[in-house]
Design a protein around this nucleic acid. Structure first.
Lengths: 236, 236
DNA sequence: GTCTATAGTCGGATAGAC
DNA sequence: GTCTATCCGACTATAGAC
């Protein structure tokens, strides 16, 4: 077991969730965020949660069971967070009550919040890392992630882009382009080390996240504002 | 050892590089592309290369040594490939002999080639996967990757963007925005599973890569063409 | 230089006390 | 339900034959 995790175990999370099941899930999010499914050990997980190692097979049937529980827990949390906003946007898009310029603003809001959360450290960074890893080596957890969460986010982004481009949301080219757009923010996670080295940062802090947000917003405006304004003038 | 690798071992690569060292490096690229450093086992690697398991510690000092050799080998190969183009562009940028519209075309050329290679399957896909993993859990290999390869690519992209935006290539905001641009193509690797599911593809083939390329080019044009043309008219 | 056999380590799950 | 102790399998690296 490495020193880092020992140090972490000595300095447990502030809110000691008394339920060992809950504690294991919280520890799992941290450990599985740092390492991957194979890389994380039950001993690390147990130490971080402050519970016995045998508790993992007992409560979750095994390490993989804990991993799935961690992902499911996170999916539930994140879904709870974004569900109202997603539903609201979906309805506006479906009823065609959204002007292209408004759609662009919505897009920026979504991207801005994501960046703040994913780069801001803590659980959301772990969350983002788990997602990126699942893309390369999908496990059973990917189904949960995709069907219960990503799909909705991705469909919403595609929907907003479709409004701006005045095309159908199901248009394959719109979907691909929406994916590329998402990439502009995802790359600050998935290409984390590169950009940190490139600009000489140790990690992301409040200031640097703001700079990243600005860069992404600039790109979005540059790309979509003219077309949105033109579409608005053209009447919808 | 899983069935997949057994099947692969039964169906070895077409060109049997007779040198066991070389064979291990080639096998390593495949196996380390599928799994990560911890996940890959020396047994898998040896089976895939058709050599004895003990050959890994013998030639490379251990599994990690092989991993580093694989990355170094790939860095050398990729550097050889892109070096002339990179140097040529650098010189043009430095001497300010590149019009903004030309810079945009260069950018599209670079992105187009990358997409074709990274998504095209084979060694380049493994390569891309290793890179993404190194971003999340950097090992010693990241230094090789960054210092000998990524840095130059990233600087070149930043340089081209700077020409288009008529700003300095060392401008932090330009660097961040260049990174976002790179994200638009990287996301088709780093968000591989998501986009495949979203559009219902099994994997990338020639046709789908062309569609992806088109989507990325459309975005680049939409974002940068107007500003490049305006800059060109404004005189440089 | 290449092989077989094995030593030594580690990790996950289990048995069984409490 | 929670702990300790342990088993068993898998892995990497090494020893030593050829």
């Amino acid at each position: 077991m490495n020193e880092l995790v020992i140090a972490m175990a000595a300095n447990p999370p502030k809110k000691p969730a008394l339920d060992p099941k809950q504690r294991l899930i919280e520890a799992g999010l941290e450990i599985f965020g740092m390492f991957n499914l194979e890389g994380a050990t039950t001993r690390q997980l147990a130490a971080r949660a402050g519970v016995n190692q045998a508790a993992i097979p007992y409560y979750f049937g095994g390490k993989e069971g804990l991993y799935l529980a961690v992902v499911q827990h996170m999916v539930d949390e994140r879904t709870k967070e974004i569900r109202p906003a997603i539903l609201r946007i979906r309805e506006l898009v479906q009823k065609q009550q959204l002007a292209p310029t408004q759609a662009l603003e919505q897009l920026k809001t979504i991207f801005g919040e994501f960046l703040g959360k994913m780069l801001g450290g803590g659980v959301n960074t772990s969350w983002a890392r788990i997602i990126v890893r699942e893309q390369m080596q999908p496990t059973k957890a990917f189904d949960l992630l995709y069907e219960q969460w990503m799909r909705y986010v991705h469909e919403t982004v595609s929907g907003l882009l479709a409004v701006i481009l005045q095309k159908k949301a199901t248009d394959q080219q719109v979907i691909l382009r929406a994916h590329a757009l998402v990439g502009q923010m995802l790359v600050f996670i998935a290409g984390r080390q590169t950009i940190l080295r490139r600009v000489g940062w140790d990690g992301y802090d409040e200031h640097s996240v703001q700079l990243v947000r600005q860069a992404v917003f600039d790109q979005l405006d540059l790309m979509l504002k003219p077309i949105a304004q033109r579409a608005a003038k053209g009447g919808r």
